[in-house]
Simulated scan of single mutants.
Amino acid sequence: METVSEACDLITGTILPHVAKQMNCCYLISMTILACDTKDYAWHKRNWLLSYAKAVTYGFGSDILLSILDGKSSLEVMSVNRSLALIALAWWLYLFLPYNVFYNFVHFKVGDSKPLYIIMMIFATARRMVKTQAAVNASFVAYPGSYIAILAGTLVSNGTQLVACIFGDFAKDIANVTTARLTLTAAIVFTLLKKGLWTFISQSQALAFFVVFGTIIESMEVCGKHFGGFDLAHDCIGNFLAMNEWLGTK
């Protein structure tokens, strides 16, 4: 058990802070790609300023919601010039670079897998888990003991879906259900740990687990292999909420 604790502390205390910039870069690029894929090329060319604004709001969706929990200005978290420049560069390369060079580079395949895209999603997923924990912690500071932390952690980690409503995009166009269920599960675990209901694992161990576990199942999704581990629990909750419909069929 001590070895596991040391490994978790290594992941959360050394590795994640060391690659924080890489995680942020991969996350912003992946969100930019999602923003670009929601419309066809003609729309982006005709509405290039709105297209870039969409990429920015997609990239900063999680930070916008987290800033609200922290009581900060949303514009403040969006005012990082390096992030704005990175989004602009990825946006132009993905949409307007001749011969689709960057698109083919990102989606380069080796067999059935896309190694470069998988690496990018691994870093982006790790960043998403870190943000989920940060949102739960921020919620507990603002509202001690409240289970609103579960909702806060889930919403912040999936902030892109919310800001996408500004542009009339549906959540199904920009995220898969596995990502949403993963972050919901992580938010529940982080909240229960903060409330002290679970004492057999630490926050560090929980974060390390979800980083490793999350990167594995997100990589599977990129390769077209659906992780069905969340499906049973999700379906049971859905059936319970729709109990009147179930009773009507009996």
Rank of each mutant, 00 (worst) to 15 (best):
R181Q: 11
A126Q: 07
E2D: 12
A233K: 10
P17E: 08
Y117C: 14
A55P: 00
A20K: 06
V177C: 09
T185P: 00
Q161V: 13
G214S: 03
H226D: 12
F167I: 04
A7I: 12
S139T: 08
F170D: 09
T178P: 03
V80G: 11
S219N: 11
S83N: 14
L182A: 03
A152N: 07
D231I: 04
T57H: 10
F167Y: 06
V189S: 01
G159V: 03
L75T: 06
I216Y: 08
V77E: 05
G159A: 04
S204R: 14
H234T: 05
A152F: 01
K131H: 09
M23T: 07
S113H: 11
A42E: 06
H44R: 08
H107Q: 14
C223Y: 12
A152I: 02
K194A: 10
L192M: 13
R82N: 08
A42F: 05
Q22K: 10
Y52A: 05
T38A: 15
C36P: 00
A242D: 12
L28I: 09
G228V: 06
I150F: 05
A142I: 07
E221R: 03
Q133R: 11
A85K: 13
D9W: 13
K45V: 04
T3L: 12
K250C: 13
Y143P: 00
F213W: 10
Y143V: 01
I15N: 03
T179L: 07
G168F: 10
Y99G: 08
G196Y: 12
T160V: 12
W198K: 12
L162R: 06
V80Y: 03
F123L: 10
L93T: 08
A85S: 10
A90Q: 03
N47W: 03
S79L: 13
I122K: 12
L247V: 08
T178H: 11
H234S: 11
V101A: 10
V163C: 09
F190H: 04
E245D: 09
W91F: 07
T191F: 02
V222A: 03
T160P: 00
I11Y: 00
A142L: 07
D37F: 12
E221Y: 03
M220A: 09
K195P: 04
T38P: 01
F105P: 00
Y41G: 04
M78V: 01
Y58T: 05
I237V: 15
L69W: 04
L193E: 05
T185C: 03
V212A: 13
A149E: 00
D169K: 10
F60Q: 01
K54T: 04
L34F: 07
P144H: 09
K172E: 09
K195C: 02
A152D: 00
W246I: 15
A208S: 15
V56D: 03
Q203L: 12
I201E: 08
N137A: 06
M220V: 11
